[in-house]
């Protein structure tokens, strides 16, 4: 888990955010201060809100979405690596392979489609009907963060 946090920090440090004013510090401090029972989602968007106080809100939101996208890639890569390891072990131990790699890839693909279609539905509900309406952005932000929490939890259990 600590490795993951470091890896994430390194990646994020080199990521070029659309807005120099954006830093994920508020979101991360919020998450670090949570007790185990509190829903992590209360922290999602904290950095975008802070950034938006003095900067363009849409750019700040885009930056936090980019932050969660990178964190998702990191978590997915880690869990995928574990799945491949388990599948390889099964081959070496001559036990029935479970194809966890295939199952994970299928799950992640289906999640992408779910996010696309869910936010497309939200898009039809709001006045402008545009893909960059704040509510549609928020949909992407929250759904991406939730998948990050899920995959990071899987990674920390294994």
């Amino acid at each position: 888990m600590r490795f993951l946090a470091l890896f994430t920090a390194l990646l994020l440090g080199s990521a070029a955010f659309a807005q120099d004013a954006f830093t994920p510090a508020a979101t991360e401090a919020c998450l670090a201060g949570l007790d185990r029972k509190t829903d992590k989602r209360v922290c999602v968007g904290a950095s975008a809100r802070q950034c938006g106080e003095t900067n363009d809100e849409a750019a700040c939101m885009a930056s936090e979405i980019a932050y969660w996208d990178i964190r998702l890639d990191v978590a997915y890569a880690l869990v995928l690596d574990r799945a491949k390891g388990k599948d390889d072990d099964a081959v070496h131990l001559n036990i029935k392979p479970r194809d966890q790699t295939g199952a994970l890839m299928a799950a992640q693909d289906s999640w992408h489609q779910y996010r696309t279609n869910t936010c497309a539905f939200e898009q039809t509900l709001w006045g402008s009907g545009l893909a960059d309406a704040p509510e549609v952005r928020a949909c992407h932000l929250y759904l991406t963060a939730e998948q990050v929490f899920y995959l990071e939890a899987v990674a920390s259990i294994e």
């Binding site: 799945a83 479970r98 194809d99 966890q100 199952a103 994970l104 299928a106 799950a107 693909d109 289906s110 999640w111 489609q113 779910y114 696309t116 279609n117 869910t118 497309a120 539905f121 294994e158």
Partner: peptide, 21 residues
């Protein structure tokens, strides 16, 4: 409808993955 169909596929694939553990 498109959202709900995608959710069903997502639910099934995610729970298949969970089972693989």
């Amino acid at each position: 409808l498109a959202m709900q169909r995608a959710w069903i596929a997502y639910r099934d694939a995610t729970c298949d993955y969970e089972r693989s553990h």
